[in-house]
Simulated assay, not measured.
Amino acid sequence: MSSMKPNSVHGGVKTHSSRSSSRRSELIALKQAEAESAKIKLKYTQQEAALLKQKAESEANLQVLSQQKVLKATLQK
């Protein structure tokens, strides 16, 4: 009879150790994918924030311009 070592692959059958290592590799790959996804989301969130800031500044400038227009029209009467 052949003896099987615990924690080894024998005859193509995975033992506890190789299953554990495989699962660990899967978890690492999953965490790396999640981190990459978070980086991409952060990039787009930063771009969106920059555009919202520009929009707010433009709207504020339009309000100032509108008030200047009203003031000028009032002074010219």
Results as ranks from 00 to 15, higher is better:
residue 1 M to Y: 10
residue 1 M to C: 09
residue 2 S to Q: 13
residue 3 S to C: 06
residue 4 M to W: 11
residue 4 M to A: 14
residue 4 M to G: 02
residue 6 P to G: 01
residue 7 N to E: 04
residue 7 N to H: 13
residue 8 S to D: 08
residue 8 S to R: 02
residue 8 S to K: 04
residue 8 S to W: 02
residue 8 S to F: 01
residue 9 V to F: 02
residue 10 H to A: 11
residue 10 H to T: 07
residue 12 G to S: 03
residue 12 G to I: 05
residue 12 G to L: 03
residue 12 G to W: 07
residue 14 K to D: 10
residue 15 T to R: 04
residue 15 T to P: 00
residue 16 H to T: 07
residue 16 H to C: 05
residue 17 S to N: 11
residue 17 S to V: 00
residue 17 S to W: 08
residue 18 S to I: 11
residue 18 S to C: 03
residue 19 R to K: 14
residue 19 R to A: 08
residue 20 S to C: 12
residue 21 S to V: 06
residue 21 S to T: 11
residue 21 S to K: 04
residue 22 S to C: 09
residue 22 S to L: 07
residue 23 R to L: 15
residue 24 R to S: 08
residue 24 R to D: 08
residue 25 S to F: 12
residue 25 S to N: 08
residue 25 S to Y: 08
residue 26 E to Y: 14
residue 26 E to P: 00
residue 27 L to H: 13
residue 28 I to M: 09
residue 28 I to Y: 08
residue 30 L to S: 11
residue 30 L to Y: 14
residue 30 L to I: 11
residue 30 L to P: 00
residue 31 K to M: 06
residue 31 K to T: 08
residue 31 K to P: 00
residue 31 K to N: 14
residue 33 A to S: 09
residue 33 A to R: 12
residue 34 E to S: 10
residue 34 E to K: 09
residue 35 A to Y: 10
residue 35 A to P: 00
residue 35 A to L: 11
residue 35 A to G: 05
residue 35 A to D: 10
residue 35 A to R: 10
residue 36 E to C: 05
residue 38 A to P: 01
residue 38 A to W: 02
residue 39 K to P: 00
residue 39 K to H: 14
residue 40 I to D: 07
residue 40 I to F: 01
residue 41 K to F: 06
residue 42 L to P: 00
residue 43 K to W: 07
residue 44 Y to V: 05
residue 46 Q to A: 07
residue 46 Q to M: 07
residue 46 Q to P: 00
residue 46 Q to E: 14
residue 47 Q to H: 12
residue 47 Q to G: 03
residue 48 E to V: 07
residue 51 L to C: 03
residue 51 L to P: 01
residue 52 L to P: 00
residue 52 L to S: 05
residue 53 K to D: 15
residue 53 K to W: 01
residue 54 Q to R: 13
residue 54 Q to N: 15
residue 54 Q to V: 02
residue 55 K to P: 00
residue 56 A to Y: 04
residue 56 A to Q: 06
residue 57 E to H: 03
residue 57 E to I: 03
residue 57 E to R: 07
residue 57 E to S: 06
residue 57 E to F: 06
residue 58 S to E: 09
residue 58 S to W: 06
residue 59 E to S: 05
residue 60 A to T: 12
residue 60 A to D: 06
residue 61 N to C: 06
residue 61 N to H: 10
residue 61 N to G: 08
residue 62 L to D: 09
residue 62 L to A: 11
residue 62 L to S: 15
residue 63 Q to S: 13
residue 63 Q to V: 01
residue 63 Q to Y: 05
residue 64 V to S: 01
residue 64 V to A: 04
residue 64 V to K: 05
residue 64 V to Y: 02
residue 65 L to Y: 04
residue 65 L to S: 06
residue 65 L to Q: 12
residue 66 S to H: 07
residue 66 S to Y: 02
residue 67 Q to K: 11
residue 67 Q to H: 05
residue 67 Q to Y: 04
residue 69 K to L: 15
residue 69 K to F: 02
residue 69 K to P: 00
residue 70 V to A: 14
residue 70 V to L: 07
residue 70 V to D: 06
residue 71 L to A: 14
residue 72 K to Y: 04
residue 72 K to D: 09
residue 73 A to D: 10
residue 73 A to S: 15
residue 75 L to T: 07
residue 75 L to G: 02
residue 76 Q to A: 09
residue 77 K to R: 13
residue 77 K to Y: 09
residue 77 K to D: 06
